[in-house]
Design a protein around this nucleic acid. Structure first.
Lengths: 201, 201
DNA sequence: GTAAAAATGACTGACCGTCGGTCAATTAAA
DNA sequence: TTTAATTGACCGACGGTCAGTCATTTTTAC
C-alpha cells in the first residue's frame, strides 16, 4: 500500500470547500475545472471522488441536512401546540438559518425534475420519508391530545405538500413573496378548521 | 426586400416539430444540432428563431397550454359542485390528456429552479395569475352558493399550491404514486371540512 | 414593358472556444 | 520497489457565431 486517504472524509471536505462557490454562482454555471481549482485539487482528482457536479451537490445537501435535522429536532422538543410544530417544519422554506440548504435544495429539485436519476429519486424519497414520519407523529400527537379532529389524519400528506407547493410557486413566479406569512396564515386557518370540538358528527 | 417568412409561424412550426423529440429524450439530453436536423433546418437558422433550447421549450409550453386552457374551460362549464371544479383543475397533474404538457411543464419548472431567468419567471407568473384567477372565481362561487364557508377565501392560495406540491413530490420521490387518488381524497376531505353549516361561529 | 442589376433577408455549416471526461505519467508513502 | 493518489494534457462533443450563398423582390435603364 501507499498513501491512504479517508475517501469519505475528503469527499466531504471537497463538498464543503465548494459550498460558497455553488451558492454564489449556481451549480449550473460552474465548470468542473473551476470547482477543482477552488477546492485546490486537480480535475482528475475531482472525478476520483464524484461522478459529476450533481453528485457533489448531492453530498453537500446531505451534509447540511444533517445539521438542519439536529436543529429542527431540538426546536420541535420545545414546541407544544401542533400549529407551532408545523410552523417549525415549514420554517425551512423561508427562514434565514436554512437559506443555504434551501438554495441547494432548490437546485437539487431542479435537477431531479430535469433529469430524473435513480440515485436522486432514492435520496429524495429517503428525505421525504424521514420528514414525513416526523410530520405524521406531530399530527398523531395532536389528535391524541384532542387538539385536532381525527380526520386530520387523512390530510397529513396534503398539508405536508402545501408548504412545498407554496415554496415552488414563490421561487418560480413573482407571487408568494411573503412566504412566511402565507404559510403561517394557512396553518392557522387550517388548524382552526381541524380543531377538535367534541364528538364527531 | 426579399423572401419574407412569417417568423412567428415558423417559430411555432419548429417548436411543434421538436415536440416528440423533446418528450422522448428530454430537453437536457438534446443538442441544438439534433433539434435543428430533426426540424429540417440548419443550426444557424435555429438561432434565428430561438435564443436557446430553453426558449424552444418555452414556446412549446405556451402553444400546448393554450389548447389545454380551451379544453379545461369547456369542462369547467359543465361542472356544478365546487369539488368537481377543483378536480378538473387538478386533473392536469395526472390525467393522460395532459401528459405531454405536463412533461414539458416539469422540464420547464426544473429550468426555472436551476437558472431563474426574468423571462421564465414572468411567464410562470402570467400562467399562475391566469389559473389563480379562475381558481378564485371557483371558490367565490362556492361561497356565494353557500356550499363553502367564507373562511375558504383565506385558503385559496394554499389549496392551489397543494396539488402542485403533491405533483412535485410524486415526480421527485417514489411516493404519491397514485396522485389522482391523493388529490381527490384531499379535495373531498377539505370540502367536507369547509362545507357551509349555517351561520359562522 | 422588360430585362439586367442591385438590394435584401433567409439560410447554412464550417469554424472557434469551452467544457466534460479520460488516461498516461508522476509523486510519495509504505 | 510497489502501489494508492494525484495530475493536467489531451480528446471529442457541444454551443454559438459569422462569412458566404441563395432566392426573391425592387430598382434602374432602355
Amino acid at each position: 500500500m501507499a498513501i491512504i486517504v479517508d475517501k469519505a472524509q475528503k469527499r466531504r471536505d471537497i463538498a464543503l470547500a465548494s459550498k460558497a462557490l455553488i451558492l454564489e454562482k449556481g451549480i449550473q454555471n460552474l465548470t468542473i475545472a473551476a470547482i477543482a481549482k477552488n477546492a485546490g485539487i486537480g480535475k482528475g482528482t475531482f472525478y476520483e471522488y464524484f461522478k459529476s457536479k450533481e453528485a457533489l451537490l448531492f453530498e453537500l445537501v446531505e451534509i447540511l441536512m444533517h445539521a438542519h435535522n439536529v436543529r429542527i429536532e431540538a426546536e420541535l422538543e420545545l414546541a407544544e401546540r401542533t400549529a407551532d410544530k408545523i410552523k417549525i417544519f415549514a420554517d425551512f422554506f423561508y427562514d434565514a438559518k436554512s437559506s443555504e440548504l434551501r438554495e441547494l435544495y432548490k437546485m437539487f429539485t431542479g435537477i431531479s425534475l430535469l433529469s430524473p436519476q435513480k440515485e436522486m429519486t432514492a435520496f429524495q424519497t429517503e428525505c421525504f420519508d424521514y420528514y414525513y414520519t416526523w410530520f405524521e407523529k406531530i399530527i398523531e400527537e395532536g389528535i391524541i391530545s384532542q387538539e385536532l379532529k381525527p380526520v386530520t389524519r387523512q390530510m397529513t400528506g396534503a398539508i405536508f405538500a402545501t408548504a412545498k407547493g407554496m415554496f415552488i410557486i414563490s421561487q418560480t413566479t413573482e407571487r408568494n413573496r411573503d412566504l412566511k406569512h402565507e404559510i403561517h396564515s394557512y396553518v392557522d386557518t387550517l388548524m382552526a378548521l381541524l380543531a377538535y370540538e367534541g364528538e364527531e358528527r
